[in-house]
Nucleic acid binder design. Structure first.
Lengths: 216, 216
DNA sequence: CTCACGTTCGAACGTCCGTTCGGAAAAATG
DNA sequence: CATTTTTCCGAACGGACGTTCGAACGTGAG
């Protein structure tokens, strides 16, 4: 996991095939969880033989490692792009939430794996992913700090940010791609309004959305 | 898992010993996750032999089943008790949040197992736990609906409740019993204020608390 | 074509896991 | 006390898992 990225000769399709494998692994991991997911199942999903996997990655842990690394990188790059040119702190936070929700909607399997398996990796691999995770958290935390609420004894910005991540990351527990009646845009708007103004004062331009499934 | 609760003769200490076993299992499950937790490790933690476990439960799944059932029952009973005599919708929600946070603080291992292993059980066992989970969600949802925010096009109460659970349940990802600088009371107050009035308008009576650990 | 090397695979290995089983120890029962 | 039943355990079984290995296959370079 030291990412030596050994420079052996490789066929042109190598990288795209590895991405295909990672996507298949993300599907399996998100469906049954990392521990219950077997390499045999991943192989079947990737249309590869069991041993064929080990030509692209060194082992099961590395599958999770690359999935998480790519996802956090993508989240952070998307965030920076989303914030470009926006000055108003409120709108900047709204853009960040929108970016996060959009990523969740587009790559729900990878995000689910990231949210659920935060403590699975160990050693260098964990540290490596944790660095990205920390950078993303800090970036959002900075946005929250820039909001500077009027009251003197304000809510703790760190605690508020942690709770914001709770709102955003619990998403995968209840969001159902098929039967959801809220669009991702509406969802982002509602979550932004809820975080900034609360349930009592929050409002969104258009109609509200509801679902009908239960949750803890 | 049909809970036949066979009425064989049992020594007086049977129930307390089983609770001791469940607590040990909760410790192991919360530390390494249900799938990585081995019955051998649980046995060691419970100061029992491996095969001795099977005198108290039928298998590994039943350990998880009882932990989750007891926890949700305790949450729901605590909620009903907390709401007793309180009329104001705001204060009722505050009491609910306080109850949830207190349970988390006191039984963090069990709650962590509940939050993390929501989709692990299958069949009747899942349904049985899901019933309690659903009842708890509905109870909180009712409190949210009773808040009746002033604006016409309000935020969806279902979505808001789901996000509230996200705030509350993400807790275990970052709360560190040892080094936390926020008391559980302060935490509950801040989370209530954040949900009701948002980060911009929320305020709590006493000082705010901060931590210094990173998060996704 | 020939050769070298990236790619793929079937078969197998060693390990760890959940569970079972028969009997010993302990406790309850009379 | 004797007898029955609960409680506890060591040993082992069968299976699933991650990984390895050597050989076959495909492909591009000389």
């Amino acid at each position: 996991m030291i990412i030596p990225e050994s420079h052996r000769k490789r066929t042109p399709a190598f990288n795209s095939k590895r991405l295909h494998l990672l996507a298949a692994a993300a599907r399996v991991f998100s469906e049954v969880g990392y521990d219950r997911a077997s390499m045999r199942r991943v192989a079947a999903e990737a249309e590869l033989s069991l041993s064929g996997i080990y030509h692209y990655v060194a082992g099961k842990e590395e599958l999770l490692y690359w999935i998480q690394l790519h996802t956090f990188d993508s989240l952070l790059r998307g965030l920076e792009h989303s914030l470009d040119g926006i000055e108003d702190p409120r709108q900047r936070l709204a853009a960040a939430v929108s970016n996060h929700v959009r990523h969740f909607g587009e790559n729900i399997r990878e995000l689910k794996v990231c949210a659920r398996e935060l403590e699975t990796l160990e050693g260098e691999a964990y540290d490596d992913v944790h660095l990205r995770r920390r950078a993303y958290f800090d970036a959002i935390h900075d946005l929250v700090k820039d909001l500077s609420p009027r009251h003197g004894a304000a809510l703790g910005s760190w605690l508020a940010t942690a709770n914001l991540f709770g709102m955003l990351n619990w998403f995968y527990q209840w969001y159902d791609t098929e039967q959801s009646r809220v669009s991702l845009d509406q969802l982002a708007q509602q979550q932004t309004a809820l975080f900034l103004d609360g349930f009592l004062h929050g409002h969104v331009p258009s109609a509200s959305g509801e679902q009908d499934r239960g949750d803890q």
